[in-house]
Amino acid sequence: MTDEQLVEGCVKKQALAQKTLYDKYSRKMLGVCLRYASSTDEAQDILQDGFIKVFDKIEAFNAKGSLEGWIRRVMVNTALDNFRKNKKHMNQTDVDDVKYLLKADNFVVESLEAKALLKIIQTLPTGFRTVFNLYAIEGYSHKEIGVMLDVSEGTSKSQYSRARAYIQKILEKENITTR
């Protein structure tokens, strides 16, 4: 089935279309959700809520854009909803904590594959992780991120640079230990 047919079927609430659409995108979307979550369980919760929204709001999908992109945005927004609910995390971690976090030395990084990078991302404090995802991977601007997370542009920037520095340290460390 093409994406168009899938959407049509889902609008009509056909179970087969819904299942096909889910099978087609769930694995990839879990990949997205994993980046926003600190654990696989949390990611699957986001995925579940996200897909419920997808099926609920499928009429709102504008056929001009790509279906995958749309579903992805729904997932990211669901992850952000989740994040906003626990907003207090945003400013919780200061630089001192980063030092402490670096103690986590149990990464087994043979190569810098997505799974290894995911491990690093998942150890990031939620605020860092969210900003890093949105900026580095999803490609939003700091201004947009500020609006999305209801923080100032400056907060987004500083969170991002801290997250980046943190990741860089881990990567350096891994490369040294695995060399």
């Binding site: 769930s26 990949g31 980046r35 579940q48 594959e113 580095a136 990567l171």
Partner: peptide, 30 residues
């Protein structure tokens, strides 16, 4: 270039989903 590294690595990143997720989704939409 951390940004490039991450965005490329995650471009086609997939992971198997626990079947319970679909069960829950299905329940919720039915």
């Amino acid at each position: 270039d951390i940004e490039e590294l991450f965005s490329k690595s995650f471009e086609n990143f997939e992971q198997e989903v626990n079947p319970s997720v679909w069960t829950n989704v299905q329940q919720a939409i039915q």
